[in-house]
């Protein structure tokens, strides 16, 4: 009896609520139907892995013992639908002995390129004057982390470095 009365007096509200629920369901379904493909479409390029490759930097013998050398590279990468040369350089240090250490030139602060200053035996980042020692450890300035050490191997006397991105 009570239910009937409520239905009778609040009939209008009842229909409205049902209409509103319908709207919510319809809009939600549409959003999900269209939204999932749209979101996937938008996000997928961001998921692309940079990928890595071994880059040949020539004979290890070309590196002088105890010196830090700038080694430039260039290889083709695919950026979305465009193929482009990727250029840059890494820092390689030989010695003592046969040990080779290859360091990224990317400053760990804000990704500027660090430059080796042989007279002071430090790497310097020109952007915010971050200083690293010869081993790539931060000495002063904003950087907190050492320069990334890059994986390398020596095959047939040639230095190969694994570069990502």
């Amino acid at each position: 009896m009570d239910e009937n009365r409520e239905a009778a007096t609040g009939g209008q509200r009842y229909t409205d609520r049902r209409g509103f629920l319908k709207t919510v369901v319809l809009a939600g379904t549409t959003l999900a139907t269209a939204g999932i493909p749209l979101a996937a479409y938008f996000v997928s390029p961001a998921l692309e892995k940079g990928g890595g490759r071994w880059v040949d930097f020539g004979a290890v013998a070309d590196l002088n013992d105890g010196e830090t050398a700038m080694l430039s590279f260039e290889y083709m990468v695919k950026d979305g639908w465009q193929v482009l040369p990727q250029r840059g350089f890494v820092w390689a240090r030989r010695g003592p002995g046969e040990a080779v250490k290859v360091m990224s030139s990317t400053c760990t602060h804000l990704a500027c390129n660090v430059i080796w200053k042989p007279e002071r035996q430090v790497f310097e980042c020109p952007c915010h004057t971050g200083i690293y020692d010869a081993e790539g450890r931060p000495i002063s300035g904003p950087p907190a982390r050492p320069l990334a050490v890059l994986e390398h191997k020596i095959e047939d006397g040639k230095l190969q470095v694994y570069l990502t991105a």
């Binding site: 961001a46 692309e48 950026d79 804000l110 990704a111 991105a165």
Partner: peptide, 30 residues
């Protein structure tokens, strides 16, 4: 480059935000 690396320094979500904004790891055609 400076702005994206500032954005990228935000913990957890930073790198993701940059990738989403740039459509990948680098500032190219995408």
């Amino acid at each position: 480059q400076v702005r994206t690396s500032i954005m990228g320094s935000v913990p957890v979500a930073g790198d993701w935000m940059v990738r989403l904004l740039q459509g990948g790891p680098r500032t190219g055609i995408v």
